[in-house]
Simulated scan of single mutants.
Amino acid sequence: MRRRILTLAVAAAAAGALAVPSAVPASAGIPASAVAPARSAPAARIAVHFDLTRGQLPENITLGPDGTAYLTFAAARQVAAVDPAGRTRVLATLAAPADGGVATPVLGFALTSGIVRTDDGTIYVLYASGDAASTGLYRIPPGQKPRRIAALPADGLPNGLALDPTSRTFYVTDSVRGTISTVPLAGGPARVWSSASALAPTGFLGVNGVKVRGGAVWATNLDQGTLLRIPLRAGRPGAVEVRATGLVGIDDFAFAPDGRVVAALNGPNTVVDIDPDGRTRTLLTGADGLQNPTSVAVRGHTVLVASAAYVTATDPNLIVATLRHR
C-alpha cells in the first residue's frame, strides 16, 4: 500500500462533528488575481483523521439526511461512512483488478472516486481500475455488495459523479479522456454527452468535479483551472460557458444555499468560494489542516472538506467549518 500511496503522490505532484458550505457559479472569466487572500470563514477543525497507511485517502464526499458523510477512499478501493460523532465504518470494498497488476492511466493504481447517495440509502460509486472487467459505475444498496451497473472505458479515469433526479440520469466525468458521459439511473450503456475542448486535459487531468443545478451541468477542469457551466438543451449539451478561471488545481466543488460555489484547490491546499458575481475569496488554507483537499459538501452554513494528503502524505482528514453570510 505504501508503494501505491507514493505513486499517487508523484502523480498528484505532476498536477501541481462535520461540515463547510458550497455555492453557485462565478461569473465568466474570473482571473487568478481575483482570488482574494481575505478569509471569509472562521478557523476550521479537523473532525476525523484517516489512516494513510491503509489507503484511506478521501477522494469524494456526499451527505446523508442525518449528517453522516459518505466517502470514497481512493487508494483502498473502499466506500466508508463517517457518522456525526466521527466514527468511521467501511461499507464496501471494490474488487482488485483481475490480474493484480492493471493500473489506471496517469495514476498507476486502481481507485474509487465519485460518489452519490439517493434518498433510499443506495450509494453509487465510480471505480477506475484500468481493467475492462471492473472499471465502471457501481450500485451499493444498504447492506448489500457492490454491483456494476455500467461499464466505463478502462483506458480512462472516471472521476466525478452527479445525478440529475429529474431525468434520472447520471453524469460522469472522465479526467483522462476529457469527456462527460451519461448513464441511466437504472444502469445501462454509458454514452458520451460532451467532449468539448474545455473538458480536455492539457498535461495531467482535465474535467474533474461535476454537479447538476439550475438547468445545467457544472464541471471543473483541473489542468485548465476553470469552472464550467454547460446548459441542458432537451438533454443535449449547450455551448460551454467558462464561469471562472485561474483556479489552479481545482478539484471538486459544491453549491451553497446563497448561490456561492465552494471549491477545493488540491495542489495549493486551499478552499475558495466564488460568488455569482465573480468575487472569489479564500476560505481555508493549510493552516486550517487542509492536506490536498479533494472535495467539499455543504449543508446549510456548514461545510465538510475531504483532504486526501496525496502530496503532503501526512494526514488525510475531514475538516468542518462554518460559512459566514456575505
Score class of each variant (00 low, 15 high):
L161K: 07
Y138K: 06
A133C: 04
V261P: 00
T314S: 14
I123M: 04
T294E: 14
I149K: 01
L52V: 04
R45F: 12
L52D: 02
R168P: 02
G187Y: 04
S33D: 13
A313M: 13
A38G: 12
D288C: 14
V210D: 01
G156C: 10
D131A: 05
L304I: 12
I61V: 15
A26G: 15
Q78I: 02
A85D: 14
I5R: 08
L205S: 08
G246I: 07
V242D: 05
G235W: 09
L8W: 03
T122R: 02
A308I: 09
A15V: 07
L205Q: 09
G209K: 08
G29Q: 15
G188S: 09
G238C: 08
L228A: 02
F109N: 02
G86H: 09
A76F: 02
S175D: 06
A239W: 01
I61S: 00
F255M: 11
S295K: 07
G187A: 10
N317Y: 04
V176M: 11
P21C: 13
T280W: 00
G259F: 04
S27C: 12
G29A: 15
T88W: 03
P141Q: 06
L185F: 04
L323W: 10
V303N: 08
R54L: 14
G235H: 08
H49K: 14
P158R: 05
V79D: 00
G130R: 01
V176E: 08
V20F: 12
A154F: 10
P153Y: 12
T72F: 03
G178M: 04
A81V: 08
A264E: 03
H49P: 00
T62M: 00
G101I: 11
P237D: 11
R3A: 13
W218P: 00
N221H: 05
W218A: 09
G187M: 07
R243F: 01
V90N: 06
T53E: 15
T166G: 15
P268Y: 01
T314Y: 03
V320E: 14
G114L: 01
V296M: 15
Y171V: 03
